[in-house]
Simulated scan of single mutants.
Amino acid sequence: MQKIIDIGFCTLKFYKNYMITTINEGVHVDKEQNEALIKIAENYYSNQPFVYISHRVNSYSVNPNVYPRTSKTKNLAGLAVVTHDYKAKRNAQIEKLFLHKPFEIFATLTEAFNWADELISNS
């Protein structure tokens, strides 16, 4: 069963193996927003592995310095970025350098879902 919540700066959708975030236009994801996302994910998934899927349909920025903290999230199996935007892909390639977990970039949600399911089944 899918659960959807709005936490002000983004919308979260929860599935069995993954959580999809859609960050609002113009947001700058920094320590405060990252901690909120981690806390919600840890509460929802408890000790169950999950994949964080960032559905980048809006233009926003991420401070790459949040990724070392994100890497410490024990049950986070990996992170996927889904976008068609060239600039968002380039930004994600830079962000990938800061996360010490599997991190992939996809053009479609279906590709990200398949990767997430495979990652979870192999963990």
Rank of each mutant, 00 (worst) to 15 (best):
K31P: 00
Q33C: 03
Q33V: 03
N34I: 01
L37M: 15
I38D: 02
I38V: 13
A41D: 13
E42G: 04
Y44E: 14
S46A: 13
N47I: 02
N47F: 08
P49I: 02
P49K: 07
P49N: 05
F50H: 09
F50M: 06
F50W: 09
Y52K: 03
I53C: 05
I53G: 02
I53P: 05
S54A: 13
R56Q: 05
R56T: 10
V57Q: 02
V57L: 04
N58S: 05
S59R: 09
S59K: 13
S61Y: 11
V62Y: 08
N63L: 06
N63R: 05
N65P: 01
V66R: 03
V66M: 03
V66D: 03
Y67S: 07
P68M: 06
R69F: 09
R69E: 07
T70L: 13
T70V: 14
S71C: 05
K72H: 06
K72C: 01
T73Q: 01
K74G: 01
K74E: 12
N75F: 09
N75A: 00
A77N: 05
A77R: 12
A77L: 07
A80Q: 07
A80R: 12
T83C: 06
D85Q: 11
K87D: 12
K89H: 08
K89F: 06
R90L: 14
N91T: 08
N91Q: 10
A92Q: 11
A92I: 12
I94T: 15
I94G: 01
E95C: 07
E95K: 04
E95W: 13
K96R: 15
F98H: 15
F98K: 07
L99D: 09
E104F: 12
F106E: 03
A107T: 13
A107L: 13
A107N: 15
A107I: 08
T108A: 07
T108G: 05
L109I: 08
L109P: 04
T110C: 06
E111R: 03
